[in-house]
Simulated scan of single mutants.
Amino acid sequence: MDFEKEIKKVTHNLNTELHSKKEKVYFLDGHREPFETYKIKLSYKNCDIIMTNTTGVQASGNITCHLSNNAKLIEFEIDSISHFMNLFLRKNSRFKVKCKNKNFNFYLKNKALKELSELSKKTAFDPYIFSKKQGDKNLIITEYHLAFENSPYAIEPLLKFYKSVIDFLLSN
Rank of each mutant, 00 (worst) to 15 (best):
S171R: 10
N70Q: 15
F104R: 08
K22V: 07
K5P: 05
A112D: 08
S120G: 04
E4T: 10
D48M: 03
F148S: 08
F3M: 05
L67F: 08
L89D: 01
S164W: 05
S43D: 12
K133Y: 00
L113W: 02
A59G: 03
P34N: 14
L139A: 11
Y26K: 15
F168N: 02
D126Q: 15
K100C: 02
F125A: 05
N70V: 11
L116P: 01
Y153F: 13
C65I: 13
A154L: 02
T37F: 03
N103A: 12
A71F: 09
S93I: 01
F130G: 10
L18E: 05
F104G: 05
K114A: 13
N69L: 12
L108A: 02
I81R: 00
N110C: 07
K114S: 12
T54L: 01
E6C: 05
F130T: 11
D79P: 00
K24M: 12
Y26L: 14
L42T: 11
I63A: 06
Y128E: 00
P152N: 10
K132I: 03
F84H: 06
S171Y: 07
K114D: 11
H19D: 04
T52L: 05
K91D: 02
L42Y: 03
K109D: 11
D29F: 13
L116M: 15
K132N: 11
T123G: 01
Y144L: 10
